[in-house]
């Protein structure tokens, strides 16, 4: 913490440069989200607004999995909250940067913070980077790519007009399975993941056509894991 934290155009441009490899990961996820949005009955404008304003892929896929017409603000909002709770723990890690930012610099940086550019920013900060604009620089191209590829997926969905049981929708499952492979930390995950899957299955049977099964499974699974860890400690 020797040098003061800055927020410069050069830092933003450095972020844009660093974002290029991240965009390759964002693009297929965005296309999948657009296809699923079409399947859920969202218009082009609605797809555009969701991707641009929410900008959280997992939450969008989860909410769209049980989208209703008319839509339920309570169900969609609550699903988004639970899925994005992990973001609440990410902001404080970047406090050495965020604490020095005021006004739009802080609020826009927080808006574009997602898992990938957050990880990059933490690494840069720990390596001594003092220009906090890097996060906004990686975030803006990712947000633009996210919206553009969501719209591309929405166009593809409209061209294909897949039936609800069409195998193209497996792509949304594949996204989450890929994330599970990345998240896997070994045997300690067996209990929380098993509990989550079982509770989700049961809740989906009891409350069909709602997204509560995802909320119930996630809460039950993570409590099971945390309680087990505490008992062992």
């Amino acid at each position: 913490m020797s040098q003061p934290v800055t927020f410069t155009w050069a830092g933003f441009r450095e972020g844009v440069r660093l974002s290029v490899p991240l965009l390759i990961g964002t693009a297929p996820f965005g296309i999948v989200c657009g296809i699923v949005a079409q399947g859920a009955g969202l218009s082009y404008l609605e797809t555009f607004l969701m991707s641009g304003l929410v900008y959280a892929g997992s939450a969008q896929l989860v909410a769209l999995a049980t989208w209703t017409h008319p839509a339920s603000a309570l169900a969609a909002g609550f699903a988004a909250f639970v899925v994005n709770l992990r973001l609440a723990l990410m902001g404080p890690v970047l406090a050495p940067w965020f604490d020095r930012l005021r006004g739009w610099r802080l609020w826009t940086s927080l808006f574009v913070m997602v898992d990938q550019n957050w990880a990059l920013a933490v690494r840069a900060m720990n390596a001594g980077e003092r220009d906090a604009a890097q996060l906004l620089g990686t975030g803006v191209p990712m947000l633009l790519t996210w919206v553009a590829t969501s719209m591309l997926g929405r166009v593809l969905g409209a061209g294909l007009r897949p039936a609800p049981d069409h195998p193209i929708f497996f792509a949304a499952l594949a996204v989450f399975i890929c994330m599970l492979v990345t998240l896997w930390r070994g045997r300690r995950d067996v209990l929380p993941w098993g509990v989550a899957g079982a509770v989700a299955l049961l809740t989906a049977r009891l409350l069909p056509h709602t997204s509560w099964y995802i909320v119930a499974g996630a809460i039950a699974g993570s409590l099971a894991g945390a309680i087990r860890d505490r008992v062992r400690a």
Partner: peptide
């Protein structure tokens, strides 16, 4: 929570 969400979606 992330692992729990993805398992709950997938299973």
């Amino acid at each position: 929570i992330p692992g729990g969400i993805f398992m709950s979606y997938v299973t």
